[in-house]
Design a protein around this nucleic acid. Structure first.
Lengths: 230, 230
DNA sequence: AGGTTCAGTCTGGCATGTTACCTTCGCGCT
DNA sequence: AGCGCGAAGGTAACATGCCAGACTGAACCT
């Protein structure tokens, strides 16, 4: 048995459980409020309760899970305050990041960003929103990765997770993807310009639009599926 | 027995171990490179290895501890890259925070900030740098706490921890405390002005000075106590 | 003598048993 | 019938035992 599992074990079991649970929560396969029974999860994933506990502890850090000691662990409801706070963190990190990246951007980075933008345009052409969103995430990640700041990038990723759920719950808005593309276009152009203040303003404007979209989605969710909120 | 321990146990054992280890690492009681033997720590703190493991995992998240699987856990060396990244995170969060706080600051907050500044002046008067630094931290915390963003505040706290060690290791610089006080004075004034851009610039300037001071300390340490760095 | 292999020892990761606590539900008391 | 109280079930937190991988050092081979 161990020969097979060791082949997969480039990451620890706790890490695998963490990744899997996180994915399910972000995709709403595990909906807000769902109980996380450690025993059950351990059984399903073929591990013991210990790595499951560690995974849940990490998810609790990211506000994706609520742990009530001696009572139970549950997928966290979508709390407006958590979403606001995640946005604050995201804005802080991404605005500072683009400021710095603008000053160190080289041709190779700009080429990668342009390539991503082309793919975004192609995805829009065929109206594939799932791919478009992946590219959206990839663009932001590409900008950030130029900083060589893995820990900060992890924080950004953690901050983005709670923002995924309202987006997936709400209906896609007509024209929003096209508007997003235009904002991304401006982001890349502003990086190419080399003007940090200009780039920061572009990022801030972009994320303000993201914030407004999420607000509308929260409202939409609140009026129909309030059970998921609290 | 349980009556006594339950009285203390407003926080879990894992949390107590975490707090204690973190304190020792920040104060350099546990110097960079020191091995963290779980068994030993568990024995000393009167708990089992499980909560110690959880504490160490959390410290590894904050880059205060390096874990080498199947080999050992050690207090992380002071890595220039970690310090740089922590500063990036700190600047990002604090600049964004002061922008927002400036827009929502009320008289009560300003009064608290002014009170803190008075105490800073008093501490400088009697040349008590330890108290001055506590007040420094408290001032930043007071600004941030106005945001009602506990998770972001935790991130900020985590980002500050790696910056403590170079400061404590290096010699205090003549006049630096006085200069810091002046920068703090400008920070509070800029918040009172209500101009978010101005306040952000003041915070950025302040943290740039902090960064330069830390850089000098890193250099000083590097030339004399390089064992602690790598 | 130098290099290599292999056993010993130490470590963290994981499995599993135990404990203490919180919730709930049902029984008994008023 | 209503209300309080206590027992039971379920949970996270913790204790403890076990295992596999990584370094170390010594013996052996070249």
């Amino acid at each position: 048995m161990s020969e097979l599992s060791s082949a997969v074990q480039d990451q620890s079991k706790a890490e695998r459980v963490y990744d899997e649970l996180r994915r399910r929560i972000r995709e709403l396969t595990l909906p807000p409020g769902a109980p996380l029974r450690k025993e059950e999860i351990a059984l399903e994933m073929g591990v013991s309760r210990a790595p499951v506990s560690e995974a849940i502890a990490r998810l609790a850090d990211e506000a994706l899970v609520d742990v009530f000691p001696q009572h139970g662990s549950f997928v966290a409801p979508i709390r407006a305050e958590d979403v606001r706070e995640s946005l604050l963190i995201r804005i802080a990190l991404e605005v500072e990041a683009i400021r710095r990246v603008t000053q160190i951007a080289d041709a190779s980075l700009l080429a990668r960003l342009e390539d991503n933008l082309s793919q975004q345009a192609a995805a829009l052409e065929v109206n594939d929103l799932a791919v478009f969103y992946d590219l959206d995430e990839a663009l932001h990640a590409a900008i950030f990765s130029a900083l060589q700041a893995p820990r900060a990038m992890r924080l950004l990723d953690a901050a983005r997770a709670p923002l995924d759920r309202p987006r997936r719950l709400g209906l896609p808005e007509a024209g929003r993807a096209e508007a997003t593309y235009a904002e991304h276009r401006r982001l890349v152009d502003s990086i190419a310009s080399g003007d940090a203040e200009f780039a920061a303003a572009a990022m801030r404007a972009h994320l303000a639009m993201v914030a407004r979209a999420i607000d509308r989605q929260l409202e939409e969710i609140g009026s129909t599926k309030s059970a998921l909120l609290r």
